[in-house]
Design a protein around this nucleic acid. Structure first.
Lengths: 206, 206, 206, 206
DNA sequence: TAGTAACCGAGACGGTACGTCTCGTCTTTAC
DNA sequence: GTAAAGACGAGACGTACCGTCTCGGTTACTA
């Protein structure tokens, strides 16, 4: 029986791969994700359609791969740990806020998010390759702060990261207001306030 | 020049309108938003395609309108005000959590959110008809609590609603964990803690 | 039971009827029969579509009716009978040739002919209202000539009219050559020659 | 500017081409030309619509091509030349008459003729591929007869072929009478009579 | 270093759905 | 009850892409 033979990654053309990802990146920014087509990517990349279908399972996967290739940190993702938790969180949220406020990045990120929403496979990949690492290092930093007694010892770290990233993401998604450093800072303050152990406040008066 | 004359809403067939929205609602739940087609909606509704194109600008608008027609409160949207802010917020977040946890509603809400993400017009309509009213009543309740001295007098109400709705939305979108009443309750506690005036906790200072 | 009640011709609006026929005539000349639509006729005539459907069974019938209304002789159709058969036939074929050579009439006549080709009902009506009367008077004139001994006494009058009208129609349809008076005259000569009794030429045999 | 690139005939699928022509032929006979749709042809042929649009400019062109493919002589079109002109013409007109009398062929030929009437491009192609060759060989045969002194030396060969084919075509188009061998024979006699030199008749008595 | 297997660009294929157009019917309002 | 107006169910139009399938042609491993 003639089983469909898998393509051989060793023979994969790096030139074609890079051209496809570049074309996808350009086109997402130009026409938006919804009007992006595989045919257009292939044409822009100077590549046969089959070459795309050979290596990516869907349009979303291509755009997604392009996004990941551009955003994936080489491995050194980590939050600073200066001892000042608020400052360290600001160091993450301020750039995040800036990027979401950038029109081109906003468009791309909206496309990616829309894909993630409805495609479980892409959602899983996004989680694995981008989100989980970010949440993990954030949890690590919060754990470190918890161990240092800076936040409540019974802090739910999962809820904590949601408190940090959820509000700004919500504001971005629904365009509830401008994404400024000032807003990011106040969000950090509020989140930390939520996580502060009552004892810390209770005893501060003494 | 022959300008395209707009259709006359007075002559619109209520039968056709209802059939289209019902068909769209059914089909989104059956095949998901991505595989939903206008042709299928028209066929299911027993309606000509042109009738859909006459009254809605896009597939998203139809699904969206169906969603709004089903979820729009007749005007009586309001948060309870029992005096117990935490209880009142739980009364909102728990049902929200339940709905997001329901597989059918989850699918529909993901479809809607994906549309909102990439279509400014739909985003505006969603804001106007659903989200803004919800946020407004939430802000009202928080303002009431602020006036009662239950939360800090300088509370930023915009940030406050983001703190309430953002985290649960984030958890839902990225499937970071189960959406339970227990989680909703802890989120309410954390949010309120973030908004509590230091003085409330710092009674011991007297 | 509600039987479909036939429209009452007595109440028919002459204004609407005339406007429809005029619009159809204009539009056939402007856009050709193939691109003519009932909607366009109704719009041009300032008439509701239903008014057309009420009184005519098809687009072809309208155009056709317009053509007939313009071309139907009031009853006084007849060939001249000067005693000179060739001259009398020329008096018919020359104007026919002129009309077929006129670009606007050519277009209209092509549209009519195409309809006739594929619609038996229109064909029958065309025969009854236009063609048969023409052929009848032509046959009458030929019969008169036959009685006068100018053509063979056993002349098949049906074949004779086909010999007169067939060749020019064929030349017109396939655009085999220019439609000139000179051509019409030669056709008349040839046709009469075909119909001449051998005896007329073969006097020498006595 | 991106010019629409023409398809590459070398890559054309013979299977698809044949299936389309066959389906068109069948469907014209089944539903008639007017009710024939490209969608139906594609469905019957098991072919994508785009494959039809890629290779044919219109519905008419498809039907037309099917007709030509079935009727185009491989190159060996010629009238017999037995020395007996009347017999040779009968050998052409009798089969023509038979074909026009066949209901299925009649329907197809009516469709083709209607197309030719209103589409100059199809008319030109019909002329080039079918009609002109037929008229040419007919003229050749008549020229041969003229050279042999069987018809008048000043015979207008263009008019002559119109006299041969026009009348039967006219009878067919307007259904003026049955298309029989007897009619064809009488037409041949009449046409030849029209073309006979008077001298031939004058001297026959000797 | 020749052969050959796999990827490559290209693009035709069978399809699906698009959004538009026109059909012929139905409904509404005015006369 | 006819007329103008126009929304309606229906379905074909011609287009755009889908994902698959040949085609040569060009690498780049294997014999």
């Amino acid at each position: 029986m003639a089983t469909r033979s898998a393509p051989d990654p060793a023979r994969r053309s790096e030139r074609a791969r890079a051209a496809v990802l570049a074309a996808a990146t350009e086109l997402v920014a130009e026409v938006g994700y919804g009007k992006l087509t595989i045919e257009a990517i292939a044409a822009r990349a100077g590549v046969g359609k089959q070459t795309i279908y050979r290596w990516w399972p869907s349009k979303g996967a291509v755009v997604f791969d392009a996004f990941l290739a551009a955003n994936e940190s080489g491995g050194g993702l980590a939050l600073p740990d200066t001892g000042d938790l608020a400052a360290d969180l600001r160091a993450v949220l301020r750039p995040t806020s800036d990027e979401l406020a950038d029109p081109a990045a906003d468009l791309t990120y909206r496309a990616i998010t829309a894909e993630i929403l409805n495609d479980p496979a892409l959602r899983a990949e996004y989680r694995t390759r981008l989100l989980d690492p970010l949440l993990a290092v954030t949890r690590d930093r919060l754990r470190s702060a918890r161990d240092a007694g800076q936040i409540a010892p019974d802090t739910d770290l999962d809820l904590a990261v949601e408190l940090v990233y959820g509000p700004i993401h919500y504001r971005w998604l629904h365009q509830l207001g401008p994404l400024t450093h000032e807003h990011a800072d106040r969000l950090v303050d509020a989140a930390l306030h939520a996580l502060n152990p009552p004892a810390t406040n209770d005893r501060s008066g003494r």
